[in-house]
């Protein structure tokens, strides 16, 4: 069963996964190149500028993780939405089992992109000698990318599983609260609602904490 679901999910997401895996491989290479680590002449190195460039380029990793999660969750449910879920509901498995199969198959498809990140990091970091005092975080970045992609996938999977109305309701309520808070603040009424929501989501122990903060491939 799982293999069959994996096959159809791969078919639905293969193009997106291949494209994202390519980007995942390229990002570490671009990072070290943009920062100047792979340049031959090291006499003019300004480590602060270079590390800043690494950090800036690192923001591409969480963006890629979110896009990957979105791609896989859309791939997981689009066929069922098209078929109005009738096929899935007539299979001889409980609904929770089917959802787990779909979720597991999507989770598995994160692996090629994570592997591409790891490979890209290894190639990028192997292309030059790290200056004394600096450390590379290829393994940590790869692991963190895997977690970020999984979290992003889980959230978008849950949203995409619902009907259009449910998805619109969840997104609409969140947007309305934030817009209302911003409007109130524009009129001088301090609510801290928007800030509170953002903190609850993106700071520890929020579910998306893994996405924010520095994603430095090279640091001190």
């Amino acid at each position: 069963m799982f293999a069959a679901i994996c096959r159809i999910q791969w078919k639905a997401s293969a193009l997106g996964v291949a494209l994202l895996a390519t980007l995942a491989f390229i990002i570490p290479l671009l990072t070290v190149q943009q920062a100047g680590f792979s340049a031959g002449d090291r006499r003019g190195w300004d480590l602060i500028v270079m590390l800043s460039a690494v950090e800036t380029a690192g923001t591409l990793f969480p963006i890629l993780a979110v896009i990957l999660g979105l791609t896989l969750s859309v791939g997981a449910w689009s066929a069922d939405h098209q078929a109005e879920h009738v096929y899935a509901l007539t299979l001889p498995v409980p609904r929770w089992h089917y959802v787990l199969l779909r979720f597991g198959a999507g989770l598995l498809l994160i692996a090629p992109v994570v592997a591409a990140v790891g490979l890209g990091c290894a190639v990028a970091l192997g292309s030059f000698d790290l200056p004394a005092g600096l450390r590379s975080y290829g393994g940590a970045i790869t692991l963190r990318f895997a977690l970020a992609a999984a979290v992003s996938y889980a959230a978008t999977f849950a949203l995409a599983a619902g009907t259009k109305r449910t998805t619109a309701a969840v997104v609409g309520v969140l947007t309305a609260v934030i817009v209302l808070a911003l409007v109130l603040e524009a009129f001088g009424v301090s609510t801290a609602v928007a800030e509170g929501i953002m903190n609850a989501i993106f700071t520890r122990p929020g579910p998306f904490e893994v996405l924010v903060g520095p994603w430095s491939l090279i640091g001190v």
């Binding site: 069963m1 069959a4 159809i8 078919k11 639905a12 066929a79 098209q82 078929a83």
Partner: peptide, 26 residues
């Protein structure tokens, strides 16, 4: 075995893939 009024199968699958998927669950 259920044959609905309108097709409920995944349109992006081939006939062979649909058979493999259905067979895997039954």
């Amino acid at each position: 075995g259920y044959v609905p009024e309108r097709s409920h199968l995944y349109p992006n699958l081939t006939v062979r893939e649909a058979l493999a998927l259905h067979g895997a669950f039954h």
